[in-house]
Amino acid sequence: MKDQSSPNTKRSVLGAAFKAGIPVLLGYSSIGFAFGLVLVGSGLPWWLSPLMAVIVYAGAAQFMGAGLLAAGSGVIEIAILTLLMNARHAVYGLSVLDKYAAAGRRKPYLVFGLTDETYGLITTMEPPPGVDMTDFYVALTAMNQCWWVLGCTAGALFGKALPFDTTGLDFAMTALFVVLLVEQTKAIRRPEPYLAAITASALAYAIVGSGNFILVATALTCGFLLIVRDRLERGGPPSGTAGQEALP
């Protein structure tokens, strides 16, 4: 259902996606840079960094994979740990089944690029008025990956020659999640999902500490949400997305 977009609408799609993704630009380029630096520092060849950024495209799993590769771990072990670390992504798709339903041939790429940050942006934000939904999502997903690939490549190539200290710039990622959480509290005003997540996080931290924290917390949250299902559904359906115009 792709229309013959005029150059103007094309530019507005790219502009809107670029603006929406600026926090990700800051976060991905600096975390990617750090990744490239760490990878080369651990004795692995530089090209592994852009290769992983292009075909794996998963932050935490890449750090883990590079560490284990450098330490001499086997393929199977790394694959299983990657599976555990990324299992949370299996839940993300549930929230965007409808949003991606009309994406056609571009759907595989949208699914491939469904990182934490892209998921956060896509579930919280509406495309600006007059902009095709799929165009917006594809532009956002591709730009996010672009910043990641650039960061990973630059870090591997020039990491050691950097003249200034960018330590802490990756906090932009945490700040983005804080902003998206504030937006969610405006859209979904029932306390149960937040309480479920906080309780689950405390429990997960007590059980597994920081390793696999997100995976265990997500699994427990799903359990808690199912327990309070009757309660929550009596309150009527949630409004879905935060209904915010194109960010910022």
Binding site: D116, L181, Q184, A197, E233
Partner: peptide
């Protein structure tokens, strides 16, 4: 179509997951 339970879950997961992702920034 996903079963009703999953359909219910996906509606409330974004706020819950954002909470977890914010908290995970403090896990270390």
């Amino acid at each position: 179509k996903p079963p009703a339970a999953l359909d219910y879950l996906q509606a409330y997961l974004p706020p819950a997951l954002m909470t977890i992702l914010v908290l995970s920034a403090f896990k270390d």
